[in-house]
């Protein structure tokens, strides 16, 4: 209030930038802490890559030799130090099992996971918004109740069941879609659709319900405010009231709920990846656990964590930008 009108927008932009810089700093700190936790937990797993590679018939001397060769006999803090400095320089280390750089394996899998997540987001977010907003606008009405029942049953269905039933219907009975999602090189649009239809559908069932319910709650919370009645009395149509007046105020809680749901799409896609045999990151990570391929496991965990933090950061920034009180505070 005390700033002169000329300097105010500038000052507001500065506080906004400072706030975002603060959040990014906090995200990095979290990432470092997580790396410590990930390293410690993976170190606690029984057995190691040398043992897994040589099998049960190997003598202790052979295992020890391989261990030394892999550098596994160094103390934990040394291994953590070399891992984290490598990671900071963009080198995630050498896969102990596949014997190739972790970075290369991930480069191959990450785009698949991102593609699946992006497609699911493209389908799920508009659907969830539509469901949430229309059920909020018809609060207590028939449409609202129907959508409530639908979203609740979606939450209640385990995704492996949804995926399996989808396979049973569309692959086994109707034979419309392949039960394995392998995108051929130079795929046509038709093949693209066939490949992704069922995985995207199964993931959507999981995330839409949560997002739609949170959207409904956030919109209803705003619809009870006096400014909504004021907007109606200005002659605005209900649709315009929601789009121009309610959404800017509801966007904070909505994007936060969406970021939480969407963060599930990378790591949580494991069941869908397994059922449809889709080469994504989640199944890669599970394989890394079984083969004790620690560098690979740790890299996957760090990616999931980073994506999660990134989504949260985006949600926070969106909420701040949408709220003039937070912006200037």
């Amino acid at each position: 209030m005390s700033a002169s009108p000329a300097s105010r927008p500038h000052a507001a932009r500065n506080t906004l930038l400072r706030m975002i810089a603060g959040r990014i700093g906090a995200a990095f700190l979290t990432l470092i802490l997580v790396s410590l936790v990930v390293f410690t937990i993976s170190d606690l797993l029984p057995g190691d890559a040398a043992q897994e590679a040589l099998g049960q018939s190997a003598t202790p001397a052979q295992v020890a030799a391989l261990r030394h060769e892999m550098g596994l006999d160094r103390p934990a803090y040394v291994r953590f130090g070399s891992w984290i400095t490598g990671l900071a320089g963009g080198d995630a280390g050498q896969s102990l099992v596949a014997n190739m750089p972790v970075g290369e394996i991930i480069r191959e899998r990450l785009p698949n996971s991102l593609l699946l997540a992006a497609l699911t987001t493209l389908v799920a977010v508009p659907l969830a918004l539509t469901i949430g907003i229309s059920s909020a606008m018809n609060r207590g009405g028939r449409l609202d109740r129907a959508l409530n029942v639908a979203t609740l049953s979606m939450v209640a269905l385990p995704e492996f069941l949804v995926a399996t039933i989808a396979v049973l219907i569309f692959s086994v009975k109707l034979r419309w879609l392949p039960s394995i999602s392998m995108l051929p090189e130079q795929a046509t649009w038709g093949q693209f659709f066939e490949t992704f239809a069922m995985p995207v559908f199964s993931l959507c069932v999981v995330v839409i319900a949560q997002m739609a319910r949170m959207t409904r709650a956030a919109v209803i919370d705003q619809l009870d405010r006096p400014y909504v009645e004021m907007a109606l009395l200005k002659g605005l149509s209900p649709a315009r009231v929601v789009i121009r007046h309610v959404l800017p105020n509801a966007v904070g809680p909505i994007v936060n709920a969406m970021a939480l749901s969407l963060s599930y799409l990378l790591g949580g896609a494991i069941i869908v990846e397994t059922i449809f045999n889709y080469p994504g990151l989640a199944s890669l990570m599970v394989n890394a656990v079984t083969s004790r391929d620690m560098p690979l496991l740790q890299a996957c965990a760090m990616i999931f964590c980073a994506v999660y933090l990134l989504l949260m950061l985006l949600a926070d920034v969106t909420a701040i930008v949408a709220n003039p009180r937070l912006r200037s505070a």
């Binding site: 400014y227 109606l232 200005k234 121009r244 007046h245 800017p248 105020n249 709220n323």
Partner: peptide, 20 residues
């Protein structure tokens, strides 16, 4: 509404949209 007949609400602090 808001054209030929206009309304002034009791509490302007809550009748204005806080984010516009």
């Amino acid at each position: 509404r808001g054209n030929r007949i206009a309304y002034v609400a009791q509490s302007a602090a809550s009748a204005f949209n806080p984010s516009r």
